[in-house]
Design a protein around this nucleic acid. Structure first.
Length: 295
DNA sequence: AAAAGCCCCTGGACGC
DNA sequence: TGCGTCCAGGGGCTTT
């Protein structure tokens, strides 16, 4: 589900209510998501003040006053909802009652805050997960060691991309999906960035570098298009296809602006192109592209 | 080392 | 109405 723009939208929705608040209530409704919850999960979170809500790639990071960070990944279908209920008065939030078992399906984690707000984690497929790690050594954590550059940071340059691509025989699609190269791109935004760049997803990634290792013209084009499409998607509040919603339950709007994703058989939107959007499977995922103007 | 394949899980859309 | 099949914003682990 959520790629970088969706996670960033959720981060922006949560931060005002969570930063400075203390975790007063925590309920987990099952022993695991993708992985078992961390040891003594409740004890390590209760009473902690949330110092900051940040993001790295597709990970949400809640820095806690005690020196640990709660790491949340939403997988494919994870949602975080922010509710304004008085969670510490009664265990009733909105229409839901949290201490009677009358829970909506797949509401797996409930976090009540000292300021009366609450956060519910819902994830039908349970590909998401939560981890706890020492804040001071996050960069060494296995989830982040080896993670590629943040695409909206100055670190993503054509030189960086060319250096990573040099000598690689993988196709462009697989290369950009690889979180060790760029952190945060997923199936939608790889497709849209390649379309905006006029690059075929089937092209060999190594062609982003010239023989001497310097960036090719395509690399020079691709880097700003990656940044543009992510910025546009964040501005639109992300893309809602099935599960994704803002923390307030509203949908994102960027799906209305897709040029190729999910548009198989429809005409290319590039003026004068006249091509048709095609679908193929790469790395076990659907790829959408225009065979005429992406080369 | 890099690349390809398989798996985890639930639910919705579709064909018969 | 009720199957069976395919597909889905992710990533980790195993095999080649």
């Amino acid at each position: 589900m959520p790629e970088l723009p969706e996670v960033e939208t959720i981060r922006r929705g949560l931060a005002p209510a969570l930063e400075g608040a203390t975790i007063a209530q925590l309920e987990i409704r099952r022993p695991d998501l993708r992985y078992p919850f961390p040891e003594r999960f409740t004890g390590r979170l209760m009473g902690q003040r949330i110092e900051s809500v940040t993001r790295r790639a597709k990970y949400l990071l809640l820095a806690l006053s005690g020196g640990e960070t709660l790491i949340i990944h939403l997988g494919m279908s994870g949602r975080l909802s922010l509710r304004k209920g008085q969670a510490d008065e009664v265990k009733t939030v909105g229409e839901y009652i949290y201490n009677t078992g009358a829970l909506p399906q797949h509401d797996h984690v409930f976090i009540g805050l000292s300021n009366g707000a609450s956060v519910v984690y819902n994830d039908p497929r349970r590909f998401g997960f939560m981890l706890l790690a020492e804040s001071g050594s996050l960069a060494d954590h296995k989830a982040f060691a080896g993670l590629g550059v943040e695409p909206l940071s100055p670190g993503l340059t054509s030189n960086y991309l060319a250096a990573k691509a040099a000598g690689k025989s993988a196709d462009m699609k697989s290369f950009l999906l690889d979180q060790r190269i760029v952190g945060g791109l997923g199936n939608i935004y790889v497709a849209e960035a390649l379309f905006r760049s006029g690059i075929s997803p089937r092209r060999t990634a190594g062609t982003l570098a010239r023989a001497n290792g310097s960036p090719s013209n395509r690399a020079e084009k691709l880097v700003p298009m990656i940044k543009d499409v992510l910025e546009d998607a964040i501005a639109a509040g992300g893309s809602s296809l099935r599960d994704y919603r803002h923390t307030d339950g509203n949908e994102g709007r960027f799906q209305e602006a897709f040029a190729v994703y999910g548009r198989e058989g429809q005409p290319c939107v590039r003026p004068g192109c006249g091509g048709t959007v095609k679908r193929l499977v790469q790395a076990q995922r659907s790829t959408f592209y225009c065979g005429d103007c992406q080369r």
